[in-house]
Amino acid sequence: MIRVTEQESRYHNIDQMSVLEILKGINNEDKLVPLAVEQALPQIERLADAVAKRMAAGGRLFYIGAGTSGRLGVVDASECPPTFGVPFDYVVGIIAGGDQAIRKAVENAEDDTHQAWVDLQEYHINSQDCLVGLAASGTTPYVVGGLNTAREHGVLTGCIVCNTGGPVAEASDFPVEVVVGPEFLTGSTRMKSGTAQKLVLNMLSTTVMIRLGRVKGNKMVDMQLTNHKLVDRGTQMVMDELNIDHDHAADLLIRYGSVRKAVEANHK
């Protein structure tokens, strides 16, 4: 396969550019990312719909990846409980090399084709669940092995990659291929490719949670009230929904523990 993500940058002698020239070059390349994501919307739709249906029937969502891709999966998964009030193990991000690899690269971790399935066993993944592989290259052995074994066990499989026709996509029931082209810095897939994966992850998890009823109107009514900012945001939501003053809304929010419960218990 031809890996577009490894092709030479369109920009030459970047080490001799001014700061502004470098910034403009990066920015010009970044502008291409949402256009590439737009081209993949039909694929994203199919994946999001399939994941939402599987999770509505009791399944969970897992992400696996290595390096930047793995870190992005961990970030997206870790933000679901505070944003949507779901259990911490409802959306799970797993990175090759374990949690230590979030901060420091673990040598050869991405080359093990068997370890992803071993890692997933900690969570007792089963045929009710969904597994999305994250790999900018579309070839990462850790991800390929995990997806292939998961598929053999009846797990719904998907992926988010930035090349076409690779083994990660072939191992996925619902592949998402976002081709953003060569990176500004040759081969540095933490740049455009990482941005594309982050955008798709935002779309996937948010769409799924909306379909699962975790959003009312356009509000995060199940968010966890873990700091003053979120308490203030929740108070404003209760004020708007019930047409009451700030102090009353704050009292209700504290009493019931969530925007949804406060509104449902007091809606006339």
Rank of each mutant, 00 (worst) to 15 (best):
R71N: 00
N266H: 10
V259H: 02
K216V: 14
T164D: 10
Q224V: 15
K268V: 11
I160S: 01
Q197V: 00
T68S: 13
D89Q: 13
L253I: 11
L201A: 13
L41A: 12
T149N: 09
A109N: 07
D89V: 10
K216R: 15
A196T: 10
Q121L: 12
G213H: 08
L61P: 09
Q128Y: 12
A96I: 03
T206N: 05
T226S: 15
I22L: 15
G59R: 08
D30S: 10
V200N: 01
T5I: 08
G146E: 03
P175F: 01
L47H: 05
A136M: 03
T195V: 05
N108C: 01
S193I: 02
I64D: 07
I44P: 03
C162E: 04
T157A: 07
D15Y: 06
G58D: 09
A262C: 10
G213L: 06
L225G: 07
T195M: 05
D222A: 12
L199C: 04
E38C: 06
H153R: 14
G58E: 09
V176I: 13
Q128K: 15
Y90M: 14
K268A: 13
R211D: 13
R54C: 10
G58V: 07
D49V: 15
L32T: 14
E264C: 07
L35E: 15
I44H: 04
I244K: 04
K24E: 15
V155M: 08
V180R: 10
G65K: 01
D15G: 11
V106Q: 12
V179A: 09
H153M: 13
V231Q: 11
V144H: 02
H124A: 15
E177K: 06
A40N: 05
V37S: 09
N13S: 14
S127Y: 12
A265L: 01
T206H: 09
G58T: 08
G187A: 07
V106P: 06
G67A: 06
R255V: 00
L134W: 09
I22V: 15
N126H: 13
D232F: 06
T164E: 12
P141C: 07
M237E: 13
Q39C: 08
